[in-house]
Amino acid sequence: MNARVALILAFLTIFCSCGRSITRVTIPIQVESEIDADRFSSFAVLPFVKDNAGDMSDSIDIGNDIASTMRRRIGKHKNYNVVGSQETNRLITGETIDSEFLANMGQLTRLGGHFEVDGLITGSYRYYTINQPKTYYGEHYSPTRRQYVMDYQDYIQRMYILALRVMIVDVDSEEIMWDEKYERTAVENHALGSFLVSQITPRDTILKSLTKQAVSEFTRQIAPHYETEVRFLVK
């Protein structure tokens, strides 16, 4: 009996000490910019162009809002200087920023030279919603039948999608040195009543949130930043 107790205690001691022998710590890891931060230090951000491809595009124009958010985010990084919103609006007065303008490299670099910056950030966006009828299947306990019974509920799922294309035009070499797409989605589930209400209420909050998420991903890629990673210390 005593031997058995001693054996159990020994096992417990070993297991407890094994559990304590490792300590997880998070350490900061510096992630370098994906662009040459020494070469590109000043940027101008043009209003983003609405991409009207497809019939589902929403009628809201958020090109200027996206550009403002991007200016704010990039301006926070000490490595980069960004031309302010007022100065940008002043310098692009009279220019038509549309999809044809984006395709014309000569015009883009000329405008970049006018701004006296290393890189011109521009691009397009598409914001749209998809509504899908869905059914939720579940089960609940029925006290009268004394068994679980299946139930279902119809609802409408509304998906908000923001597809943002960001380009950085190298003003000196007259080349597009960055061209990436960022897609962000948000989902809302509605009963028929709340769905009808959601059709007429403004969706500013969702839109702002999607814009911030997409812009954040872009700025994280182009600016040096810190991420945290787990490492193991051994006792």
Binding site: I29, Q30, V31, E32, S33, E34, I35, D36, R39, D170, D172, S173, E175, M177, E229
Partner: peptide, 19 residues
């Protein structure tokens, strides 16, 4: 982590050379 940062700088230097 080192390789990821090295890859980034390699891509940048290649881009510089091309330009």
């Amino acid at each position: 982590h080192v390789e990821r940062n090295k890859d980034g700088s390699t891509v940048e230097s290649e881009t510089n050379d091309e330009s």
